[in-house]
Amino acid sequence: MRSSSLRLRTSLFAAVVPLALTLAATGCGSSSAPTAATSASSNDPGVAAAQKVVDSRLGSQTFKADLPAIDQIAKAKDKKVLYTAISLKIPYFQNVLKTMQSAAGLAGVQVDGCDGNVTPANIAGCVTQAISQHYDAIVLDNIPVDLIGQGADALKGAGVQIISAEGESLPAADGVTYAGTGGPEMLQAAANWTIADSGGKANVLIVQQNDTPLQVKYVSQYMQPTFAKNCPNCKVQVISVTAAQLGNLGTQVSAALLKDPKIDYVVSEFDANVQYIVTGLQSSPRGKSVKLVGAIGDLAALQRVRSGQFQRADVLVSPSYAGWAITDQTLRVLVGAKTWDRLDTPFRTFDTSNIGDVTVAQDGIDGGAIVGGDTWSHVFRASWGLS
């Protein structure tokens, strides 16, 4: 196979790197803030709807799903899957891989890891490995299929099934099966928290990353419509940033606050970018009065929420859930069973009303204790007939 067939689209790759690199970041600080659970007092129906969403995600989450049975799970035995993450140096992806290896092992499936190492050459190498070593499927985690360019056609031609993991929940199409883990819904939850907390009167600055059409879609088709529906009196502005411009994001944020001193909420599309936003808030005279909200959370985000400094809310899912969900979808692909388009991901919203009820630690995130415990593995096992 010619090397040109695996050429990566580096402009899209640049969009993924900052998100992956900061999943393992940490942070700290101190102060306190009111919560959505106590701030929303408006009788506005939109605010009430937003508050209902908030309330449903503040407590411990229980995963429920009516999954079609995989009747011929034995067909998966001895199959091989190559889990390719944007970077296996990051604890989140390490734990997704570890979970997949354990879960898939119950069905006799071998899952190996390949480190994308946040470089086009390494990701191309993983694609080549999947083909040359005759893997039955490749899981691309946080690596958009568009990113591998003609490598997707090469995989299909070699009979390697493609699972696109942890992006948008979509029906299978063009030889790609999707395994979404709630990203868009978490962004909607962040918007609803802002609406409820402000009583329907927020002046919001959304920080959107726009290296890929999907990143723009997350804001334009999920976050902004949520504000429009539940908060017609909210003012919503969007600033855009590319991966190459992240170093200047703090300046963008402080400039936006100077231009519109009434901005009182900043909502980040990705927690990965929050460290740059905080820099902008720190340099603004009004920064301490602005409430920061994030999604697709990590340990650093929860630590900021706990301290009350700048970040007031965060929305998070456990890598344990992600590993089981991706494994389930992968097994379905391997044996030709019915796949799912979307599951109700057990993500949880954290603010000052509930952050004190949990232990903020990496192992609590990794194993799922922080969202209410592992309520998903037995559901997936049951659908495999292995309960």
Rank of each mutant, 00 (worst) to 15 (best):
M1R: 06
R2L: 12
L6V: 10
S31P: 02
S32A: 09
P34Y: 03
T35E: 15
S41T: 13
S42A: 10
P45M: 11
V54Q: 04
R57I: 11
Q61L: 00
F63V: 03
A65P: 11
D66C: 15
D66G: 06
P68I: 06
D71A: 10
Q72F: 09
K77Y: 04
T84G: 03
I86V: 11
K89D: 15
Y92I: 10
V96T: 06
M100P: 13
M100G: 08
A104L: 08
I123T: 03
A124C: 04
A124L: 05
G125T: 00
G125L: 00
C126M: 03
V127T: 01
Q129P: 03
A137Y: 06
G157K: 00
S164K: 08
S164C: 06
A165D: 05
P171L: 13
D174L: 05
Y178P: 09
G180Q: 12
T181R: 08
E185Q: 14
M186R: 09
V204M: 14
V207Q: 05
Q209Y: 02
D211I: 05
T212A: 13
Q221D: 12
T226Q: 12
K235Y: 01
S240Y: 01
T242W: 10
A243P: 05
L246V: 06
L249K: 01
V253Y: 08
S254I: 05
S254N: 13
D260E: 13
P261K: 15
V266D: 13
A272T: 05
I277G: 02
L281Y: 08
Q282I: 01
Q282D: 04
A301K: 03
L302G: 00
Q303D: 10
Q303Y: 12
R306V: 03
G308A: 01
Q309F: 06
Q311W: 04
S318P: 07
S320K: 02
Y321W: 10
Y321T: 03
Y321V: 01
G323C: 12
I326M: 04
T327C: 02
D328V: 05
Q329E: 14
L334K: 01
A337L: 07
K338T: 09
W340T: 13
L343M: 11
F347M: 15
F347S: 07
R348C: 07
R348Y: 01
T352N: 15
I365W: 03
I365T: 01
G367D: 15
V371R: 15
H378E: 14
G385A: 04
